[in-house]
Write a protein that binds this DNA or RNA. Structure first.
Length: 576
RNA sequence: CGGUGAGUAGCGCAGCCUGGUAGCGCACCUGCCUUGGGAGCAGGGGGUCGCUGGUUCGAUUCCAGUCUCACCGACCA
């Protein structure tokens, strides 16, 4: 490709509205341009990288016996009403009407559509296992789109759906996809973790997320430093053992705590550390049911765990008025004792063995001291409802400690069970002629997001450092002086030879000063660069620079070509 | 959805308080010069000042409405 005839609109200045590095660099390198909030044009360079990654995904999907197809991005409301998600999905689902006033939506995912197709076509156990996938543009009307391709509203996703005769077979399909995902992200040279995850609005029994480690990641994850346990904090189980009872219970005592509304205030006022107090939170369901959650003072509530333990769809903090009605007290002095109205009380596991702790008295400026669970109050249940923290002991091996990371979710695999096959009535006949529900799994990869995550992980002050498998071009040939006929002729010959070898080359033939060309080539992240100048040519040499390491070699022309060929070939060959 | 802020040339910004018809840097075009890390000189093109209405002799500037965008909040009892 001739740079002068291609389209790479680079910019020197960092656009003011781009916060994270990948967004800034994708804009500066001319890969994307914003059309509207969370909606982007993919310019040629951006598209090339995206296609590269898509094709890696396709290769691995095909290798894992998934079959490519393509479903529509516009979907009829009926299917969503049938599955129950038309009501459940909320505002993220972009809905609209056609000219006949019929309801439609932009597909945020395709479980309904694929299940509908499968229930019409798959009738026998002989037709399974089967797994369909597609690479499709999705639309989710995010509350707050940001970070460029990282959290767009319109985005490209690979999604796959497996169909099996029973749970055991479905587990096999799941494992196959899990392994394919491992290969995909390894092939891209990403530093990532597969972690246990909550299933969220997709539903299902269990799932793993594939997380690219990056400080800018929107998710917190933990991994054990001794065993293989790793999980999203939303899901991570608390493995900390109960503290042994260390003190004699003292008589309960009501104490004035004027204006001490936070745990930190109360603890400081009483001369305690916050882990010796109990914090009380009140939450409500959509229907207005309330629940009181008790946690050790230094811990955070995990809303997802609480929600799941109650079996509620949605959860929100109670308002001041609701709290006043329930406890008779303003915020800051809440506790499980002497409630005005009866409510469910759920305490975190670690609250059970606390001794002589502190809770609010449900009365302004008052707390109870020397409170002892089960003696002074009994929660309805003790459940793990807190967020794990760094250095918690591992819930699996109990030997290691948990480490915390930030991660970007680039892939997610789910075991769906029969959730959708039941709601959409997708059944087959087994070997005994008996009708059974199909077992499903679904598997997503954010295509654009993975490219962004890769940039997040691979860049320096000068710009992007693409790994060869997803770089828009493998190598650039930079002619130092476009007016020097000898340099141009030699550059072109090198360019053609490399292309003949199947290498994707960007030939920078522009009539620009060398500095401009070097800056652009660094910014757009081409992994290998051959510089052709008159001085080097006098000795029959060109310069090979490796973007990632900064390593520079002056080599005879043929050797340089061979070296590039060898480096590209070995980078693209994936070792099993 | 709430809070804050911003919309002026392709990009980044100034001007607005104190109304008189718009400017800077980069980018772009022409010419000269230059060619190993975003050069220099000279000349030039490009703006319904987000949109609608109001006040005024006159509005980018003041007022009202509206649209768009960005940032913050939804880690707390």
């Amino acid at each position: 490709m001739l740079y002068s005839r291609y389209f790479i609109p680079t910019v020197k200045e960092t656009p003011s509205d781009a916060e994270v590095i990948s967004h800034q660099l994708m804009l500066r390198a001319g890969m994307i341009r914003k059309l509207s909030a969370g909606i982007y044009n993919y310019l040629p360079m951006g598209l090339r990288s995206i296609r590269k990654f898509e094709n890696i995904v396709r290769e691995e999907m095909n290798k894992a016996d998934a079959i490519e197809m393509l479903m529509p991005s516009v979907q009829p409301a009926e299917l969503w009403q049938e599955s129950g998600r038309w009501a459940f999905y909320g505002k993220e689902l972009l809905r609209f009407k056609d000219r006949k006033d019929a309801d439609f939506c932009m597909g945020p995912t395709h479980e309904e559509v694929i299940t509908d197709m499968v229930r019409r076509e798959i009738k026998s156990y002989r037709q399974m296992p089967i797994n369909f996938y597609q690479v499709q543009t999705k639309f989710r009307d995010e509350i707050r789109p940001r970070f460029g391709l990282m959290r767009g509203r319109e985005f490209i996703m690979k999604d796959a759906y497996s169909f099996d005769v029973d749970s055991l077979a479905a587990d096999k399909s799941y494992d196959k996809m899990y392994n394919a995902y491992m290969r995909i992200f390894e092939r891209c040279g990403l530093n990532f973790r597969a972690v246990e995850a909550d299933t969220g609005s997709i539903g299902g029994s269990s799932s793993h997320e594939f997380m690219v480690l990056a400080d800018s990641g929107e998710d917190a994850i933990v991994s054990c430093d001794a065993c293989r346990y790793a999980a999203n904090v939303e899901k991570a189980e608390s493995g900390a053992p109960l503290q042994p009872v260390s003190a004699e219970p003292l008589p309960i005592q009501k104490t004035a705590t004027p204006n001490m509304k936070t745990i930190a205030d109360v603890a400081a006022f009483l001369g305690l550390t916050s882990d010796l107090t109990v914090k009380t939170l009140v939450y409500c369901s959509e229907e207005g049911d309330t629940v009181m959650a008790l946690l050790r003072g230094d811990h955070e509530l995990n809303e997802i765990k609480l929600k799941n333990s109650l079996g509620w769809n949605e959860i929100r903090m109670a308002t001041e008025e609701e709290i006043l009605r329930l406890t008779g007290s303003p915020i800051g002095f809440l506790g499980p004792l002497e409630l005005k109205e009866k409510t469910t009380v759920i305490a975190d596991l670690l609250v059970r063995n606390m001794v002589n702790t502190v809770v609010g008295a449900n009365e302004i400026d008052m707390h109870f001291c020397n409170v002892n669970p089960s003696r002074d109050f009994t929660p309805d249940r003790y459940v793990d409802i807190r967020n794990v923290v760094a250095n918690d002991s591992c819930p699996r091996c109990h030997e290691g400690k948990l480490e915390m990371w930030r991660g970007i979710e680039v892939g997610h695999v789910f075991k769906l069970g029969t959730k959708y096959s039941q709601s959409l009535n997708a059944t087959y006949l087994d070997a005994n002629g008996k009708e059974q529900f199909i077992f499903m799994g679904c598997y997503g990869i954010g295509i654009g997001r993975t490219v962004a995550a890769s940039i997040e992980q691979n860049h320096d002050d000068n710009g992007i450092i693409f790994p060869i498998p997803i770089a828009p071009f493998h190598c650039s040939v930079v002619a130092i002086n476009a007016k020097d006929k000898g340099v141009m002729a030699e550059s072109e010959e090198i360019y053609l030879k490399l292309e003949e070898l199947g290498i994707e080359v960007l030939f920078d033939d522009r009539d620009e000063r060398p500095g401009v060309k070097f800056k652009d080539n660094d910014l757009i992240g081409i992994p290998l660069r051959l510089v052709v100048g008159s001085k080097g040519l006098a000795e029959g040499k060109v310069e090979l620079k490796i973007r990632a390491t900064g390593e520079v070699m002056s080599l005879p022309i043929e050797e340089a070509i061979a070296m590039v060929h060898q480096m590209v070939t070995s980078a693209l060959k994936y070792k099993e």
